[in-house]
Amino acid sequence: MRIFKEPRVVYAHCDIPCGIYDPHSAQVAALTVIRMMDLISESGDASGTVPTHNIARYTEVKEKHAELCKHEVRIIWGDYFKEDQILEYPSLNDTVREIMVLASKSKQGIDRSAGLKLLEEVNRFAEIFWKTKGVETKRVVPPYGPNEEIVIPIL
């Protein structure tokens, strides 16, 4: 009897903007978090109006980009990945959860290792994403601070 079966899917959807997904924004956000940690560390314990002002700005950008990173990953995870892909890549859910935790940890402090771990998890997320598209990836170090590795598609 149908009553015991799962309900059918009814689409309340949009065909237009959907389909444009790319983990690159999340990766750039993670790089930004690390860069801000570096800038804050380089400021040392400098007191005075200008250093205080600068640290406030770095902290704000770090906060925003950690949140942006979470947002971008959630959108791809929730809107792009389908159930069969989640089954095919069993590490995906753990990776997403790690990203959420590490991004929050990166907000709370200036521990660079948390930022690096965040970037690594976002890179793993990107690798899975590109695999689902059948696209090979490679790791490169972009020519700007914080000079850390990101996964990019070979297109």
Partner: peptide, 23 residues
């Protein structure tokens, strides 16, 4: 008939994942 919503074009009345009874 029962349906489960996929997508957000009917928010905020119906959200992605909502289950509906349709006559």
């Amino acid at each position: 008939m029962r349906f489960v919503v996929s997508g957000k074009s009917m928010e905020p009345k119906f959200y992605n994942g909502d289950k509906l009874f349709v006559s």
